[in-house]
């Protein structure tokens, strides 16, 4: 990673200002503004339909939006911002790989979309294989991998080109505790190497462990943001009943409510 973590002078890697996205009459994202500074892991939390995925898709220029501005490394993000996209890595919730290609060839293919030099790419693919612990599975086809290994392949495909800003959309869904541990360790390694990370998950303990700062979204709006400690304090302060030592899960349910979402 090119950017090393620097606690003194922090540049805003991602800036979202007054972002509004409507699906016909329904507001999916409502005047959303936030920033992510260099080397930070930002946790984006929210119940289903809260606008997390829509926000990320808007940031990645996969969706058009009605209002607002998105800047990455100080530059406006558009579908044709290919130089900017070179610095971004995305790990979608769904495993997105070719069934016909081996583990190595899948990583090589997706890395090749960013890096054209064969020698440089080879080195990066090897590094990614090592990072996610798939070196000995390099010749396997995706269908021969377990769920946890597939998730790790999915991550390797998204970060092999060594991006400076990484979006991780629920990367630990449906994996066993061992694989989850490995994935979380990998994310910490990426952070240690200087990457800025936007992380979404429904697992509160993961967010608590990884994220420097958390934004809780609901109905397309930010309803709370801050460090884990700040959010816990916020719930303590506003509760009628004194909550003793609330967990992040308590905070989340207190802020977003307990009714089921569609």
């Amino acid at each position: 990673m090119k950017h090393k973590k620097n606690s003194t002078a922090k540049l805003n890697v991602l800036e979202v200002t007054h972002l509004t996205k409507n699906y016909r009459e329904q507001k999916a994202v409502d005047d959303l503004s936030f920033a992510v500074s260099e080397g930070e892991i930002l946790g984006l939390l929210g119940p289903n339909g809260s606008g997390k995925s829509t926000t990320i898709n808007c940031i990645l220029a996969l969706l058009k939006y009605q209002q607002g501005e998105i800047r990455i490394f100080g530059e406006p993000m558009t579908p044709a911002s290919y130089d900017l996209k070179r610095k971004i890595g995305v790990i979608f919730q769904e495993v997105a790989v070719f069934d016909e290609l081996s583990v190595y060839d899948n990583i090589d293919f997706f890395c090749g979309l960013y890096i054209t030099d064969a020698a440089e790419r080879k080195a990066k693919v090897e590094k990614a294989l090592q990072l996610v612990g798939l070196t000995k599975y390099r010749k396997y086809l995706p269908k021969q991998l377990s769920g946890g290994l597939l998730r790790r392949l999915n991550i390797a495909c998204g970060i092999a080109h060594e991006p400076e800003l990484i979006f991780l959309d629920e990367p630990t869904v449906a994996v066993d505790p061992q694989s989850r541990r490995r994935i979380l360790d990998n994310i910490k390694k990426l952070r240690d190497q200087g990457a800025t990370i936007v992380y979404t998950s429904h697992y509160m303990e993961e967010v608590e462990e990884l994220c420097d700062r958390i934004i809780i979204l609901d109905h397309g709006k930010i309803i709370a943001s801050g460090t884990t400690a700040e959010l816990k304090q916020l719930v303590k302060d506003r509760s009628v009943k004194q909550v003793v030592g609330p967990t992040l899960n308590d905070v989340f349910l207190e802020l977003t409510g307990r009714e089921l979402r569609d």
Partner: peptide, 18 residues
């Protein structure tokens, strides 16, 4: 179909290759 499968196509769309 392999290249246009939505999950793969999305990954291609967010890459630096048009």
């Amino acid at each position: 179909l392999s290249f246009r499968e939505q999950k793969v196509a999305r990954r291609i769309m967010v890459s630096s290759t048009s």
